[in-house]
Write a protein that binds this DNA or RNA. Structure first.
Lengths: 251, 251
DNA sequence: CCAAAAGTGTTCATTTTACACCCATGT
DNA sequence: ACATGGGTGTAAAATGAACACTTTTGG
């Protein structure tokens, strides 16, 4: 390739797309927005948008997240951790030349894990936003209102994000990102059960998570919000890598 | 692209950068090339280049790999697996607005794992290519010929690639990508030892890898190329995910 | 009282680790 | 003969899985 006139290399548009996951009513759910513009106007899609001229990729992802949902995020990169921010990390980049019918668009997908939230507050240029259980989005496309086919290659991106979340909660403390700041062992267990889609033994789970150094930090309080005997409250301990890991039961 | 004038979004250049790893003389080593052009002219860097107009990201990575090293690659995506291809997967994307002094460049880094090779055959517009042990590249930059500081943010990219390889050989069969098509259990063990930088018990290692279903497939042959008693030859079995995983000893 | 969820103890099976020992080749 | 790496046996220790049982609340 000849030196470096801007015309010497192909121009691309670069976007960020967001796989925003939460656990709602025992189901792993993703945030989807209704597109207000062509292409795929009126179709559901992952939130996202163009990266700006002077913006890093993770900044763009955090900005789009705030614009379209009102959520604040922190990733492994930033040092400040506002009390109740969601987890943000880069997922993968999608650059099929035909993935956007308009032009060549490379999309850097990000994964956001958030606690269960009040209804999403859509903003910007999206026509609506809602949580949908991931099985209704990555399963067979029935094309009704409960199984809307996603725009672009967003179904694939979502599937990759879900797979990442499923495997990452095994060996990291990321499952706590789905919990409120203070949570019980039972609530954390229901996160694992929802994300993996399996039932876990409450007794062995309790021993395991409380015995993994750095995973959980007791806050001293208790709650009975789940009914039954009062449960101790915990917050996420400092550890990011779990040793030993949580083992996902065989399929 | 009617509704979308190109001026409505910022134009980016998109490149692929390659973290090409191999195990040479018991050391995990990376492929670096000497830059023939500004910026960072004469400095060592990761191989890479611009993505073309009609090319997917993994195609661009495979093309650059072939152009600059003569290696052929196959990823999890492509179905054809030419007899002796290197493993290729996407690593991460780097888009700091200041990472390239010329203009806004987003680089999609890829990770390539290859068996030990004859001296790399540089091609294209690079001034030279060599293997360097990764410690000499990601450690403190002494700025001599043995510890050359890499161009751009390539030291960070390399570090991320090395970390990915180190963790991924734990739970996947990827370590076999560092071996020739036929290899012995001892050769595979030396791969783990080099990548992790630890010593492993040869006897327990042997039992473990031969007992993990789908990891190794005996070819029937034997070799004495390592000296001592003849060793059975294996090739990679079909499995990609190891169950149980190889456990990296504690630090 | 009962139901529900939290949490503890105990037992058995499996896996990991450490290391003694034998095997088959080259020199 | 002996050095070198390949490979098996075995027993102790650590871990994981199953499940009986107790605790503390709300209704």
């Amino acid at each position: 390739m000849p030196p470096y006139e801007p015309s010497a290399y192909p121009p691309f548009a670069v976007t960020v797309d967001l796989v925003v996951l939460t656990v709602r009513r025992h189901a792993l759910s993703a945030l989807i927005v209704r597109r207000g513009e062509a292409p795929f106007q009126g179709r559901w899609a992952l939130p996202g948008g163009f990266v700006r001229e002077e913006e890093d990729l993770s900044e763009a992802a955090a900005r789009e997240l705030a614009e379209e949902t009102g959520l604040h995020a922190h990733g492994p990169v930033e040092e400040d951790t506002p009390a109740h921010a969601a987890h943000l990390e880069q997922l993968a980049t999608y650059g099929d030349p035909k993935r956007d019918p308009r032009m060549r668009v490379v999309s850097v997908a990000h994964l956001v894990l958030a606690p269960d939230l009040p209804a999403p507050r859509p903003g910007g240029d999206v026509g609506g936003a809602r949580w949908a259980p991931v099985e209704t989005l990555v399963g067979p496309a029935d094309d009704d209102e409960e199984h809307p086919p996603l725009a672009f290659d967003h179904r694939r991106i979502l599937a990759d994000g879900v797979e990442r979340a499923r495997s990452k909660i095994e060996y990291s403390s990321l499952a706590t990102a789905f919990c409120p700041q203070e949570f019980t062992v039972g609530e954390l267990r229901r996160v694992y059960e929802a994300v993996w889609g399996v039932a876990l033994d409450p007794r062995n789970f309790h021993r395991k998570v409380t015995g993994t150094p750095g995973f959980l930090l007791p806050t001293g309080g208790t709650t009975t919000r789940q009914g039954g005997r009062p449960a101790q409250l915990f917050q996420a301990g400092g550890a990011t890598i779990l040793n030993p890991p949580m083992l996902r039961p065989e399929v």
